[in-house]
Nucleic acid binder design. Structure first.
Lengths: 189, 189
DNA sequence: AGTATAGGCCAACAGCTGTTGACAATCCAG
DNA sequence: CTGGATTGTCAACAGCTGTTGGCCTATACT
């Protein structure tokens, strides 16, 4: 409540646009999500989107800033880290933040893919680092964990492979948690 | 050479269109790959695409039929199956077949996602089955393997996360092969 | 009060999209 | 050679896209 110079009246509109944008981008992907559809859902005029965000790319850049809110792994019992991580990722995907917007867009849009790389480098790698003894192996371990977690999200929420959809939260944690744990604290090969 | 009634002269054109379609769909995704761009690359008129494939959807359906050519896992030493599978998947992704066309499209296109489910059910599950002792666990094990392998392709070839790109073929086989092996022959949880 | 300014809407633009139909060229059987 | 079918080209369509500038209204400041 200190870093906001003035509470402009348009902030509510901006927020509505951003919320609608995350939903449309997440549901339709970057190309099929039209500014007109986003504006209609936000109950404003398409021209407002251009006024506040400059262009469709600008809107996406603003809508694709996410905070994974990864927990402090150093404060956890070492054997539980894997399971906690899996549970946390499931929470993120099933939250209303529409993380799908970034994933769906990153697959067909170069700029979105770069944003995904940034998110990996600035949030995933640092969060995972304290759980790993040999600092040199941090990027590789983080990368391998990303393949498993993003692959899970891809198969479960995007492609909806039936056996992966059928698994319940607790089963997923029990099945994948140990694998993640292995990537963190086990030998690399 | 028996099921082809006549070798029509247009078969070459059809093949050129399909090749160009796989490349454009794979590089740009379903929405951004335009019929005009595909036709230009195939050096024919856009109208030919409509004549031979009916619509853009029809073209994609024809272009998105892939054969993973999965090896007979029953003929392999049990301990090598994981590594062989990882190597084979890397081959598939790096082959000229543009399997990316299906993956990229499946993320933003519902019909393509269903095709991916079909491919999983008709090729991956049956191929993996002979390596698994308890038949009841086949779909779950196949699903978990899919999350790891598709996640690897996503992070390495689509998102291009630097640590995952940096790993070489042999390293990937050494790192991920045992995990796949575990999913196949190890205990489920 | 009056006025500058921010918030919002409308209509229109140029460009691209998938798709279509009419027309020309080539091939092949009789 | 003749006639029909197969290949191919061209131009155009209706619709949708991101984006723009003008215009009106309501708020906030002096």
């Amino acid at each position: 409540m200190s870093d906001s110079p003035k509470a402009r009246r348009s902030d509510a509109t901006k927020a509505a646009i951003l919320a609608a944008a995350r939903e449309r981008f997440g549901h339709d992907g970057y190309e099929r999500a039209t500014i007109r559809a986003i504006a209609t859902q936000a109950e404003i005029d398409p021209a407002m989107v251009m006024r506040y965000f400059g262009s469709k790319e600008g809107l996406f850049a603003a809508a694709a800033q996410f905070d994974l809110r990864l927990p402090d792994l150093g404060a956890l019992p070492r054997e539980e880290i894997g399971r906690v991580l899996v549970g946390h990722f499931l929470d993120v995907w099933e939250s209303g933040d529409n993380f799908f917007a970034l994933l769906r867009a990153a697959v067909t849009n170069e700029a979105a893919a770069e944003r995904m790389q940034q998110l990996f480098a600035t949030q995933v790698v640092p969060a995972i680092a304290p759980a790993i003894t040999d600092p040199k192996t941090v990027p590789i371990r983080a990368g391998l964990i990303a393949t498993q977690m993003l692959g899970l999200a891809l198969c479960r929420y995007v492609l909806r492979l039936p056996p992966v959809v059928a698994l319940q939260r607790e089963q997923l944690i029990a099945l994948i948690g140990p694998s993640i744990q292995q990537r963190l604290t086990g030998p690399l090969a």
